[in-house]
Design a protein around this nucleic acid. Structure first.
Lengths: 233, 233
DNA sequence: CCACAATCGTCTGACTCGGACTATCGCTCA
DNA sequence: TGAGCGATAGTCCGAGTCAGACGATTGTGG
């Protein structure tokens, strides 16, 4: 068994290994489709990678490649013993890196103090709608019969659901914050204070009216609620 | 004012623009530090990018670059009118792309049916600990005086907190699932069924004992709890 | 003046990303 | 039967991302 070089495996690698292992065999397109309706719900992988990764894994001896006999003669991949082993190894290791919450809306909110008064409210509405919509997708998935999906995958989708709910509620709450709708006292038109002296304002809001939007009344993190259960299970 | 080419802005770009705008001026190192203790809590940006991006933005006319007079003669960046404008524009647009939950632990769980019996329990424990730990970080941040942080940023950290709590509870609940600890009926040693015929098993578990771990009793997504509030605000 | 830690910064190379672009298939309607 | 068409399937590309190794500078105490 040619051991080839031991390549470094990335998340995509394991995704591919896992998906191929589970299905027995798969074409890149198969991967693309099944990833889209499973893990892709919370972690999106560009499809180009699902085409590029299998050959790479095959070159490393972790997958075996064949071709369809007729028709499009697509590449079909199966996992090898070496591949199985690497997958196992990964599954057995408890350490997983940092968790990442990549949400452009959140990033926007982080800098919302630099924006114009109406911005946050608009953003909050849009975000709430988007998350509610995704919530529906999860609901559909959850309604699938028990045998449509392995238990472990389903658990992750449960979490996806809970996550979307958390987000939806967060934005709805934020949007409902009275501090967001009242108080545009400094007319929104005086929005260019530091116009020609950009280097002058040490902590100046980009469009002024920054901290006007600040909501004084809302407390930070309710220390005490830590136990009340988000309702994941 | 030389308009230069209008470059495409990525999340890092806005992060840098925003941070520079807020501080008035910043060196890449400043960015690295303040990002680490704010947005970096839920969305980590490799520090190399915080060194690379400002010059890029400067080349596009969105930042202005100077140097310290003495000492290390570090690069100091300030936002320009053009930069302010682009930032504003972004802050005003309500659409933000997909939200992403990049969590290796979750990916692992998704394929846990292919693993060995004890794996999930171990993973769950480790994940729970990690999330509880990060929860503490957020608690510390939340304890900071009101003027230590703009309201908008604080809101996002609130969400980060809620997110970590959600995760911690998810993994704890999962780890507590009796189905995980009982039932290693098929001896864990028969773990290599398809040893020499890797292509045979259409849906075979990598290490067998796959669906044994499945927890039949746990319902999928409690439709009704959608209103009970995760406790973000 | 050296040692040493903390601060500060650069570089590299493999991988990621998303979207434009191409090709093939199966079907329908003229 | 073959042009049109939507779904399926795959390729390509260049800019951006990423982690981590590495290098340089500064401040402090001995």
């Amino acid at each position: 068994m040619k051991t080839m070089v031991e390549i470094a495996l990335t998340p995509v690698s394991y995704l591919v290994l896992g998906e191929v292992a589970r299905r027995g065999s798969a074409t890149p397109y198969d991967l693309k489709v099944s990833v889209a309706e499973s893990v892709g719900n919370y972690w999106s992988f560009p499809h180009a990678q699902l085409y590029k990764e299998p050959p790479r894994l095959a070159a490393a001896g972790l997958l075996a490649e064949e071709r369809e006999a007729a028709g499009r003669r697509r590449r079909i991949f199966r996992i090898t013993e070496a591949g199985r082993h690497r997958l196992q190894e990964w599954l057995s290791s408890a350490d997983s890196g940092r968790t990442e919450l990549r949400d452009l809306g959140l990033l926007k909110l982080a800098f919302a103090d630099l924006g114009r008064p109406g911005d946050v409210a608009r953003l909050a509405r849009a975000q709430a709608v988007a998350h509610r919509a995704h919530l529906e997708v999860y609901r559909t998935l959850a309604a699938l019969p028990a045998d449509a999906m392995v238990w472990s995958l389903r658990r992750t989708l449960d979490l996806g659901f809970a996550y979307e709910r958390l987000m939806a509620e967060f934005w709805e709450r934020l949007g409902a914050d009275p501090a967001l709708v009242r108080t545009p006292p400094p007319p929104a038109d005086s929005a260019r204070p530091t116009r020609d002296a950009p280097s002058q304002g040490a902590a100046a809001a980009v469009g002024s009216a920054g901290d006007v939007v600040a909501s004084p009344g809302t407390q930070v993190v309710p220390d005490d609620v830590a136990a009340e259960g988000g309702g994941v299970g």
